[in-house]
Structures are given as C-alpha cells and as structure tokens.
C-alpha cells in the first residue's frame, strides 16, 4: 500500500515533468520556421492551409501564422515579434516602408470587398451603380451598418469609402463593433445590418442567416495584399534569410500559382497579381 502510493506519486510527478520538458523542447523544436503576422481574412479562408505546405515542401521552412487585424499586425512587426508581414492596407504598408520598419513592399494578390446586407435590402443598394452610391443610400436610409471599428485593413478601407461617398458615418445606425471580421459578420447576421466584408471571409463564413451579398464589383472595392520584407537594421534578431525566401516565394511563379489554385467552396478567392 505505501509502495503503491509512492509509485503513483512518482508516476504523476514523472508525467508532469515530462509535460514540462516536452513543452520546452517543442519551443526550440526546429528553428527553420518564421513567424508571419497576417490578417484574419487570409487565415480564416484557409488560404494559408493551402499554400504554406507547398512552400514548406519547397524550402523546408515552416510558417507560423499569427492572424490578427492589420493594425495589430503592424504593431507586432514594429516591435520585432514577427519575421514577416502580409497585410492589406497599401497606404499603411507604404508608410511602414517609409518609416524604415520594412525595406521592401511587394504586391502579392488581390481579393475584393463585398457589401452584405439583409436579403430584403431595405436601403435598396442592389440598385446602386457605384459603391459611393451604395454607401450614400445606406446612410440616407439610416439602415443599421456594422463596422469592424478595429483599425484593421478592412476597417481602414471602409472608412476611406465613407469619405469618398461624402458621408460622415455616425448616428444610431452606425455600429462600431471593435471586432474581427467573423465576429462582425455574426453580429450583423444577428441584427440584420449592412456590413462590408472581404469576399474570402464571407465565402468561408457559415452563420449567414438572413444575409446576402447585395453589392459587388466596383473597382473601389479592390483589396490589395502586400508582403513586406522587414528591416534587418531595425530588428537584427529576426530570421531575415528565411523571411526573404518566403517573401520571394510569394511573388514567384510557384507562389502565385499556389495562390491561384486555392479554392473555397468551388470559388477562387485570391487573385495573384505580383509585378
């Protein structure tokens, strides 16, 4: 009996210790990986699941994706916590280069934004010719609009569209949620609100309830993704060599093909456009 107790205690201790140790070894498992700060839209659509294995097969480098809003992604990169950056806010990206945090920015791919709303379309934006017109109609009707309000790339793009439509979005109908794309869609579905989403997240999104795409196709809704090569001077500890291989692979023929090959529910979502 006392022996059994001792044995049990030793087993439990051993298990615990084993767990701790294995956790430690996992962390330094293989140094051949990079940490990529990117946006929720790319992660949630499943794009990375499709293209990263191809990159890994090519180079033996794994990519750890931290999917956050574009604003947070910039901040992570600014602090030196990511080796590479793939986001969709061209103006912000160019500023990032200008500020010296990145040495190079390359176009990688585009997808587009779509305006989604309750299928009965109370503001009637289905009839709109341009996205400016559609936004004006929503504001005019004071129809509920769910904005991410999280300083993400999508949020920044949406604010630029309001500006170009000449509308100051405020009032009861304009709801700033401070959430990611998915939660924002969940909320919009719950309150039958209009919402702007990238197409990738929308196609991957399952909880649509009464929502539908009501407006799409305007060039102003064009959503450019860019890859940034981070500054070695600014953060010498980063895995610049590996990150550069990723950066170059994305815009290479192989990388571009991998992006073009990715489909979700039978739809191509990202269109490679590296120059």
């Amino acid at each position: 009996m006392p022996l059994n107790k001792t044995k049990t205690a030793i087993t439990i201790l051993g298990l615990g210790l084993g767990m701790v140790l294995s956790l430690g070894s996992q962390a330094q498992d293989d140094e051949r990986y990079i940490t990529l700060a990117s946006t929720t839209s790319t992660e949630q659509s499943g794009l990375f699941d499709a293209i990263i294995p191809k990159f890994r097969d090519n180079t033996g480098i794994d990519v750890h994706v931290v999917a956050v809003g574009t604003g947070q992604a910039f901040e992570i990169a600014r602090r030196g916590d990511a080796d590479s950056l793939l986001v969709h806010d061209t103006a912000g990206e160019e500023q990032f280069v200008a500020d010296g945090y990145a040495t190079e920015r390359r176009d990688v791919m585009v997808n587009d934004f779509v305006i989604i709303g309750p299928s009965d379309d109370p503001a009637g934006i289905g009839e709109a010719e341009t996205v400016d017109e559609a936004f004006s109609m929503i504001a005019e009707a004071e129809a509920p609009f769910a904005s991410r309000g999280d300083d993400s790339g999508t949020n920044r793009a949406e604010l630029r569209l309001w500006e170009s439509a000449g509308v100051e979005p405020n009032g009861e109908w304009y709801r700033e949620l401070g959430s990611g794309m998915g939660p924002t869609l969940n909320t919009a579905a719950g309150m039958d609100a209009y919402v702007m989403s990238d197409r990738a997240t929308w196609v991957a999104f399952d909880n649509r309830q009464n929502l539908d795409i009501l407006f799409e196709g305007d060039e102003a809704l064009f959503n450019q993704y860019g890859s940034l090569l981070l500054s070695e001077e600014r953060h010498p500890h980063l895995k610049h060599d590996l990150a550069q291989q990723w950066h170059e692979w994305l815009v290479s023929e192989d990388g571009q093909q991998a992006i073009a090959d990715f489909e979700l529910k039978g739809q191509q979502l990202f269109f490679p456009n590296a120059k």
Partner: peptide
C-alpha cells in the same frame, strides 16, 4: 500564443476562430 495552427492553437482559441468563421 497567437493561435498559430499546429503550434499554439488550443481549445479556447480554436473555439474563437471557429466562431469567427461563423461555424457555430
């Protein structure tokens, strides 16, 4: 942790991710 697939994804962060995808 960053909710990195296969590296730092745990039950709770996976739940958040699936909620965001609308796969309730």
């Amino acid at each position: 942790g960053g909710n990195i697939d296969g590296v730092t994804r745990v039950m709770t962060t996976a739940i958040v991710l699936e909620t965001a995808k609308g796969d309730l």
